[in-house]
Amino acid sequence: MEHQFHFVSGLPRSGSTLLAGLLRQNPRFHAGMSGPVGGLFNTLQGEMSGRNEYSVFITDAQRRRLLQGLFEDYYGEEFTAEVLFDTNRIWCSKLRLLKELFPTAKVIACVRHMPWIIDSIERLVRKNAFQPSSIFNYQPGGTVYSRAEGLANGDGMVGFAYNALKEAYYSEDTANLMLLQYETLTSDPAKAVKAIYDFIGEPAFAHDFDNVSYDANEFDLRAGTPGLHTVRNKIEARARRTILPPDVFCRFENDAFWREPQLNLRGVRVV
């Protein structure tokens, strides 16, 4: 393989775009928001399964080559960076497979206190009141309660990612997994970056925490959610009051399992 691949996954609204804007300051790195590779990967896996009558002609060795080749073919010569970070919430559910395909690759899972994820999404919805969001299939109706319920169910934007994160965290393949807390990234970015570089085995780089940029305005507009991937130039923690009703906030308040050392059965690195 010509590139060194790593993966960014975890929970939505937990700093993955901010992390991408920070990492890409290093000219050796490429990182971006969630892209199409995860969906292509899933589709390719499905088409090579038994549901395809011709799968009898496909060996596991061929499956491995095709899945590995997807990454090199997608990034190709257009991406000259030596180290590529592909972002998708699906990667936490593919930890065993990624370990088989890319033994030296690391998975950085971004996490955040759950009520604030719901709060962040609700803020976007209210801010863009005239534009129904792709997050809710462009449906203009609903309440904060139905939106929170939809986000949290197993197929929802938050629920799927949360379940995939738990699967990875409690699996037997955690050696290449690190959890990066949004609260650490925003309050102490130097500590977060140092931990990432140590984790992936790369030499240190002087990042500028006051001048981070990432532009995905066109994508956000098409998704009916302007500001979805907006990144402030200066990384800093900002205190605010929640806009969620107290019962909605409390519903998710105890879901941060990664904050409980006794639940970290396999010693996953949590920063």
Rank of each mutant, 00 (worst) to 15 (best):
6 H>G: 09
8 V>R: 03
8 V>D: 06
9 S>D: 01
9 S>Y: 05
13 R>P: 06
15 G>S: 03
17 T>H: 14
19 L>M: 05
21 G>E: 06
22 L>K: 07
22 L>C: 11
22 L>A: 08
24 R>N: 13
27 P>N: 14
28 R>Q: 15
31 A>K: 00
32 G>H: 13
32 G>R: 00
34 S>W: 01
35 G>P: 07
36 P>N: 05
36 P>F: 02
37 V>S: 10
37 V>P: 05
38 G>F: 12
48 M>K: 11
54 Y>M: 14
66 L>N: 09
68 Q>D: 05
69 G>W: 02
72 E>H: 13
73 D>Y: 07
77 E>G: 10
81 A>D: 01
82 E>I: 00
84 L>C: 04
84 L>R: 08
85 F>M: 03
85 F>T: 00
86 D>F: 04
87 T>D: 12
88 N>D: 14
89 R>P: 02
94 K>R: 15
102 F>Q: 10
103 P>S: 07
107 V>T: 03
108 I>P: 04
108 I>Y: 04
112 R>E: 07
113 H>I: 01
114 M>C: 15
115 P>I: 00
117 I>N: 01
118 I>G: 00
118 I>E: 03
120 S>T: 10
121 I>P: 05
121 I>H: 09
122 E>H: 13
128 N>F: 02
129 A>T: 08
133 S>V: 09
139 Q>L: 14
140 P>C: 13
142 G>M: 11
142 G>C: 08
143 T>I: 10
144 V>N: 04
146 S>P: 09
146 S>R: 05
148 A>S: 14
148 A>K: 06
150 G>A: 09
153 N>V: 06
159 G>W: 12
159 G>N: 11
160 F>S: 06
164 A>L: 08
164 A>W: 03
168 A>D: 02
169 Y>P: 00
172 E>G: 11
175 A>Y: 11
177 L>R: 02
178 M>C: 11
178 M>I: 05
179 L>E: 01
179 L>T: 01
182 Y>G: 09
187 S>C: 08
188 D>V: 03
189 P>H: 11
193 V>T: 12
194 K>V: 06
194 K>P: 01
195 A>D: 15
195 A>N: 08
197 Y>W: 04
199 F>K: 10
207 H>E: 00
207 H>R: 07
208 D>E: 10
213 S>R: 14
218 E>T: 12
220 D>M: 06
235 I>S: 12
235 I>Q: 13
240 R>S: 15
241 R>E: 15
247 D>N: 13
250 C>V: 10
253 E>F: 02
254 N>C: 07
259 R>N: 15
260 E>T: 14
260 E>S: 13
260 E>L: 14
262 Q>L: 15
262 Q>W: 12
263 L>E: 15
264 N>R: 04
268 V>H: 03
271 V>E: 15
